[in-house]
């Protein structure tokens, strides 16, 4: 009996080890590109020609200044931050205002507007890029911040998310505010907006991710280095620092750090935002 019990225990133990081994193996595969990047980032040009590059033999941040300076990642990061924050603020403001109106106000053209927002929801930006580029060119917007920001300041999905969140507020709370003497603007500021904070947070995070990761539009409307955002800055790296893969990988990792920080801080909102729906990858 005791021997049997021991055998079962052993079997369970080895099963557990097998599970961990499988998890570790899969984790290693998923993580490999990032691991390799971290290793390459710390190696000099001369070390790249061998597999030793994968050996974690030191912590060397030597390529960070090169990436930030010579490779202009510092400038790109600042540009991306400015543009992304501006887009987030714009989207939140327009979504909150329009979402509130579509949820609670009775006005001429309400149904038409809902239909128009729904239509905008299914029009991918890639389709409108031909004419938007023309518009920005005609308005002299190439290499300006506003050209990077303005087209994204209204976000159909954001408008719908906010409308849905407002509609989810218990009706009694809104009625109580009406009886307490508040008009729509007062209700929006004092009751409705504080009650949909979590949706605003999810929307902000989601829209920041989309804005930060944008590629096509910044590529089209920026030519000058001092206006480029970080994503398209990455592609220019090979031109800027030549074949120094270490600097390129450092720069690539630097482009990811702001997002990593955000994700760790706002894990909960991220899941909400993602499940609420994404159209653009």
């Amino acid at each position: 009996m005791a021997a049997d019990a021991k055998r079962i225990e052993l079997a369970a133990g080895s099963k557990l080890v097998a599970r961990y081994l499988l998890l570790a193996l899969v984790a290693a595969i998923v993580l490999f590109p990032v691991y390799a990047a971290v290793m390459v980032a710390q190696k000099s040009l001369t070390e790249l020609g061998s597999l030793d590059v994968l050996v974690p033999d030191r912590i060397d941040l030597g390529s960070v200044p090169t990436a930030l300076g010579e490779a202009r990642m510092g400038r790109y990061l600042v540009n991306s931050a400015v543009v992304s924050v501006a887009i987030v603020i714009g989207q939140v403001v327009t979504s909150v205002l329009a979402g509130y109106a579509l949820a609670f106000l009775d006005f001429t053209g309400r149904r038409a507007l809902l239909a128009a927002v729904a239509a905008s929801l299914i029009i991918p930006f890639e389709v409108t890029v031909v004419v938007n580029f023309e518009t920005v060119q005609q308005l002299g917007g190439v290499d300006t911040y506003w050209a990077l920001v303005l087209p994204f300041v209204a976000f159909p999905l954001g408008i719908f998310l906010m409308r849905q969140a407002f509609l989810g507020i218990p009706r009694d709370l809104l009625d109580a505010a009406v009886v307490d003497g508040y008009g729509h603007l007062g209700i929006l500021r004092s009751v409705a907006l504080p009650l949909v904070r979590s949706t605003v947070a999810a929307l902000s995070l989601f829209s920041f991710l989309l804005a930060w990761n944008q590629y096509l539009w910044p590529l089209l409307v920026t030519n000058r280095d001092d206006r480029r955002t970080v994503q398209i800055g990455l592609k220019q790296l090979t031109g800027a620092v030549g074949p120094d893969l270490g600097v390129i990988m450092t720069a690539t990792l630097l482009a990811t750090i702001p997002i990593l920080v955000l994700l760790v801080v706002f894990e909960r909102q991220l899941i909400r935002g993602l499940t609420a729906g994404s159209v653009k990858g």
Binding site: V93, T94, S95, L97, A98, Y100, A101, L102, L105, F107, R110, L113, A116, V117, A119, S120, I123, V127, T128, V129, V130, V131, N132, T135, L150, P151, V153, A154, P156, I159, H184, L185
Partner: peptide, 21 residues
Amino acid sequence: LATALVAPAVLILGVFVLYPL
């Protein structure tokens, strides 16, 4: 009031989404 609230969104969606399409 509604016009004021939806104006920014309508303007942007009009100029950069619906008109371009």
